[in-house]
Nucleic acid binder design. Structure first.
Lengths: 223, 223
DNA sequence: GCAAAAGTGTTACCACTACACCCATGC
DNA sequence: GCATGGGTGTAGTGGTAACACTTTTGC
């Protein structure tokens, strides 16, 4: 039997920070690239599921509070086999896409959320630059035909906040009036009261909540 | 260092057989489930890419002619970590979706294409039933916004054949006239001559070819 | 009252559906 | 000429984009 490749997981955890899309990066504690900012990851333990390993990476390397690591939305992005070498041998990484609700938890151990627009393409070690790009493409795609945006927002939110999520991820402006009608038409939003105060002037907005909060609904593309 | 999980690849290879969607199944040559029909797979070699391993599985276990195995369209579906056990230990499989042009090559070693509709849900070993279902969902999805159908057809084809691909995969009838206008509007098809003879009666149809034959074009959803 | 932000309505346009009709070939 | 299948045109419908307008709050 030949030597087995190392199986690892990495996580691209997105969150909203000051209205912009941000990604969690943690300094590497081991060679190679020791000290460099990278996507948090971990080697798969023998009797652990891929998703469990991803949560462990968030709670461990990235220093996310345990409650936050448990509540993060995670889904698999795919396996990456860049043939780079690790001290332990050849590595294949199963990457997961994570989404974190606003307000963002405070990571520890030097990890932090970085605005995606400010992460230079070649700044990340290994193939993490390409991995980040693939995660962005997936997120943009799913925004169009699922309720995945729900996982970037608090339980209840204003429609204007939801629109900002779409604009931050798709990186383009959307028409306010049409966004309202479209999103309300598809019937995935329920009113959840009215925002009280906190805003200067203006009519107080309704708050909304996604129905089917847990699952992802597949409807016709709605943007 | 704890024991490492085994990393394998499996392939869901689809093709068209008598106008119906078919999947390649091969009898297992090793325990467990020795002799049972299953998706062809292989353990990942230490310095082999995932795609290369998938092609090796097709040429080896499934007995596909070398030329056919080389020309098959392959893309990654995802990693599956059903915690089933192999004599070698816990296994994680990176599954690939494959598409094979008409006419189908003749596999060897007992492998054969089976109409998807006739594969009973629980008939396959391991989690291969769920894997097959996931591959179908992916294929249906991609049919809507890419030119992936090209990889199920010969280089040139009649529009009516293309429509049959869509109908076979989506499992529903489509309107002939609207299918024509829609597919021609998106500008991914180029005329490639006229079919000569071979048909009983009727006007001889134009043949078409996908432009951008290699890449997959992403356009607005077009069906 | 005025500014600010939420929420609604109107119109032109474009894509999709369904269906009818025309075209070119073999027999 | 007639059956057969390829290919085209058209009217109705519904969603989308752009934009103007109304409503409700704070000061």
């Amino acid at each position: 039997m030949l030597e087995r490749p190392v199986l690892a997981v990495d996580v691209v955890l997105f969150g909203l920070q000051a209205g912009a899309l941000a990604v969690l990066l943690a300094p590497r504690r081991e060679a190679p690239f020791r000290g460099a900012l990278a996507l948090p990851g971990a080697a798969l333990a023998p009797d652990e599921s891929l998703l469990a390993a991803a949560r462990r990476a968030l709670a461990g390397k990235a220093g996310l509070p345990a409650a936050a690591a448990r509540e993060v939305h995670l889904e698999q992005l795919g396996a990456f086999d860049g043939l780079y070498r690790d001290p332990r041998g050849r590595t294949v990484s199963v990457v997961h896409l994570g989404l974190c609700r606003e307000p963002l938890p405070a990571p520890g151990g030097g990890a932090a959320f970085h605005p995606v627009r400010e992460v230079a393409p070649g700044a990340l070690p290994f193939d993490h630059g390409q991995v980040l790009e693939a995660a962005l493409v997936r997120l943009r795609g799913k925004l169009r035909y699922t309720n995945i945006a729900a996982f970037l927002l608090p339980e209840t939110f204003r429609l204007e906040e939801l629109q900002r999520v779409y604009e931050a991820v798709l990186d383009r402006r959307l028409n306010r009036a049409n966004f309202r009608t479209k999103l309300l038409r598809i019937g995935l939003l329920a009113r959840a009261g009215v925002a009280r105060g906190g805003l200067q002037g203006g009519r107080p907005p309704h708050l909304y909540r996604f129905t089917r909060g847990d699952l992802e609904a597949e409807e016709r593309d709605f943007l």
